[in-house]
Design a protein around this nucleic acid. Sequence first.
DNA 1: CCAGTGACTTGCAATTTGAAAGTTACATGC
DNA 2: GCATGTAACTTTCAAATTGCAAGTCACTGG
Lengths: 125, 125
Amino acid sequence: MKKQKVSDEKPGLVRRSVCPITNTLDILGDKWTLLVVRDMFLGKKTYGEFLASPEGIPTNILADRLKRLEQHGIIDKTPYQQSPVRYAYQLTSKGQQLSPVIKEIIKWGLENIQGTKAAMMDRNK
Amino acid sequence: MKKQKVSDEKPGLVRRSVCPITNTLDILGDKWTLLVVRDMFLGKKTYGEFLASPEGIPTNILADRLKRLEQHGIIDKTPYQQSPVRYAYQLTSKGQQLSPVIKEIIKWGLENIQGTKAAMMDRNK
DNA sequence: CCAGTGACTTGCAATTTGAAAGTTACATGC
DNA sequence: GCATGTAACTTTCAAATTGCAAGTCACTGG
């Protein structure tokens, strides 16, 4: 029932439990993070492309989530041009391994929430 | 019989998009909701049992999440005794269908977050 | 009558969210 | 040269949500 500090790791990190679900939720458990990951599976790469998604993520939230995903090694950021510098984000292998999670969430949503559509998950659309 | 879904849009419902991921996150996308679902897969049934989990969910959050899960038809609540009345929560079939989602999250967590352990997901513990 | 238990509800401070506006660094058109 | 545009953020601040603690309610058992 006690929250434990992780002995060897990053100072400041408080682990709620050793449960893999709990620890995954501490990284991905909110309304926006997985939508950014979804967009990257759909081939989107830039800040502007993420902003353009239909859900309308606020700019400050997007910046924060990109930073956190990067810190957790789920995505990485590289400049794809200089003058002016522009960045491309992409999934690391850790991020790509989220594919089965995303897939099962899509499946559950389509089967259990009326009005959801698979169409938008089509990459060439 | 349980009450049937209405085909009309619910009055308070604001849909961010038709994406199944988005709509799933609007129900389950936070740090606590899936932990309650996890506990139910582990056989826990009562308010007190959920409270006793190692993450230490606050009482008001637990009450709120149980209410929301019930409203979304993912769990249901029945009195298992009278005088004083005591309630048991259980997953509906909609809730049980979350099993593959949970399974993939556990898998990702175990493979990608150091210090997580499968042990606690054993039912007879 | 009093303590204890299970299932909540309430109060309130702290944290997080989100809408909008501002910033930085260039590029292009007039 | 200057205004406008664009991409990628950062800042501000009110509103909403979270989380700790305490309180409530309906009993039971001693």
